[in-house]
Nucleic acid binder design. Structure first.
Lengths: 133, 133
DNA sequence: GATCTATTGATACTGAGTATCATATGTGGT
DNA sequence: ACCACATATGATACTCAGTATCAATAGATC
């Protein structure tokens, strides 16, 4: 029960409400990536009486704070990964769903090279790695 | 009117039907990325009488053939980019939607490094670059 | 041209995500 | 400890992307 997320929300100046406490606890108990539907099911199973909208609102909030990152799985579905709010990338296991953070690893050089070749000014990038752990 | 896509579909051994001819022509006339809804609207505006399902089916088919690639924009919506069926990455302009292909640029080294650090066997990766042209 | 299978469009459905709004609940000031 | 009030909530209803079904249609091959 680390409550890192809750602390971060507190620092962000939002209210620490009941639903937010319960949901962040559920997220921290999870392993690997999860979808909004997974979380909603978790909450439903425990009769938490948490509304659909609240789940989406919290995920958006966590995402803004960089506590969770939204990724696009190879099958096109959206999932979330709890993570540190520093820039990094994710390695997702296609078998078990486990995720690992990977920091820069030399991508800065890649984007610089791409910018040079194309003349674009690159502002964001997204790198997702998929494999087997 | 190059019909590259149509030729490729022919080579893939599927039927060259009316709807497929019309839709591939519409796609080739497009610039930058587009969504399924965009294409559907294009077809609707021209009274082509093409069904919703047909559009999604064609996009899936083109995607399997690597003639089109599905990307996830920063706002979470899915879009498609017509492209060559070789492995590469996309640079998307956040202003005008223009896209450019970028080949390897050294990502192989990045994935190799990530694999070494984590012990994962990396099978796929997705890199999307966003900026201004 | 006949035949046979792949493809189509209409329809209806599912599931993700969002808008609305009256009600409930944290929080900061007293 | 209480109050006041903005913030957050859940119910409901909605929109929009994508999919399943299936009878009708139309390519390809002979």
């Amino acid at each position: 029960m680390t409550e890192e997320m809750l602390d971060a929300l507190d620092r962000a100046g939002v209210r620490l409400t009941g639903p937010r406490r319960k949901l962040t606890a559920l997220i921290e108990r999870r392993e690997g990536h999860f979808t909004a539907a997974d979380l909603l099911k978790d909450a439903g199973r425990r009769r938490m009486g948490i509304g659909r909208a609240t789940v989406f609102r919290l995920l958006e909030l966590l995402s803004e704070q960089g506590l969770v990152e939204r990724i696009d799985l190879p099958d096109g579905t959206h999932a979330y990964i709890p993570c540190e709010p520093t820039h990094h990338h994710h390695l997702v296991c296609l078998n078990c769903g486990a995720t690992t953070d990977v920091d820069d690893c030399g991508i800065a050089a890649v984007t610089r090279e791409a910018a040079r070749r194309t003349g674009f000014k690159i502002e964001q990038h997204r790198l997702e790695l998929f494999g087997r752990c």
